[in-house]
Design a binder for these strands. Structure first.
Length: 277
DNA sequence: ACCTCCCTGGCC
DNA sequence: GGCCAGGGAGGT
């Protein structure tokens, strides 16, 4: 499932082919993919003839600035990925032909993702406007994180997934960062000592850095692939995610899986103990 | 601050 | 043949 590292890798590929290019033809072939505009036709009409000035990312949202001040905004959701000059494979819901000859496609079997075109006002009402600071490009400092978590009784795992607090972390990297920082996922956010928060900030940075370097995490379902079709190689770096009942790679204790806010959560009961344990 | 829904391929 | 995966929007 695409999280910040996978979206960042996608952004770099898209920036390489889209920056400076003219969008000549667009086809949106699934209603749901265009659900944040009035429909496929609007997305097509607002993109055709526009030139892309840059491709950015905030949290898990991709955004390309267009020459008329609009933005193309995309989210990969659960199963979305962009391909560049790939084949017209099943579940392709968006295709853009550029004046460079490159063809960008959006493939998304579960249709949790979307492609939208927003002007400045529309962006203010979109999910983009509700994002907290990006976990990679604008990481909170220890004092800021401590302030953000003060008084919060919710589990730290749930808080790390709250995109309004910090944007970009999903289920995989939240579990990985908590393991690296040796924090129990059920710890109340406001109860975590400042030293542990400093460790958490560092763990988030290291987990994301490794994932980006490794091309992201492609799980066995291969829902996520790089835009050039290759699988990311970060799976083998995962310490807890998807390793239920397997020995902890740090201490050998079997990894446990619990539900936190109905999200599967993986942790080592030995390495990650609550502050009181 | 919580719950429900959306959606489909893959797996038991 | 049914269940699971889960990000984010919208509602209570």
């Amino acid at each position: 499932m695409p999280e910040l590292p996978e979206v960042e890798i996608t952004r770099r590929h898209l920036a390489g082919v889209m920056t400076g290019a003219l969008i000549q033809e667009v086809a949106v072939t699934h209603e749901r993919t265009a659900r944040y505009n009035s429909g496929p036709r609007e997305v097509e009409d607002r993109l055709v003839g526009r030139r892309v000035s840059d491709v950015g990312r905030t949290g898990k949202f991709l955004h390309a600035t267009l020459d008329d001040g609009q933005m193309m905004v995309a989210h990969l959701g659960m199963s979305g990925r962009f391909t560049i000059d790939g084949e017209a494979e099943p579940h392709t819901h968006f295709r853009a032909s550029l004046d460079t000859g490159n063809i960008v496609r959006f493939v998304d079997p579960r249709t949790f993702g979307f492609v939208a075109v927003f002007n400045e006002e529309e962006i203010g009402f979109s999910g983009l406007a509700r994002l907290g600071p990006d976990a990679w490009t604008s990481p909170l400092g220890p004092a800021e994180l401590e302030q953000a978590l003060a008084g919060r009784t919710a589990a730290i795992k749930a808080l790390l997934l709250d995109q309004g607090l910090i944007s970009g972390l999903g289920n995989i990297y939240a579990d990985e960062a908590l393991h690296k920082a040796r924090i129990h996922p059920m710890s109340a956010g406001g109860s975590i000592a400042s030293g542990e928060l400093a460790a958490l900030i560092q763990a988030i940075r290291e987990v994301l850095e490794a994932a980006i370097e490794n091309g992201g995490t492609s799980l066995s379902d291969l829902a996520y692939l790089l835009p050039d079709g290759r699988a990311g190689e970060n799976l083998e770096q995962l310490m807890v995610y998807g390793r239920t009942d397997l020995p902890c790679l740090t201490c050998g204790t079997p990894i446990r899986r619990i539900l936190v806010r109905s999200r599967s959560t993986h942790f080592c009961p030995s390495c990650q103990q609550g502050p009181s344990a």
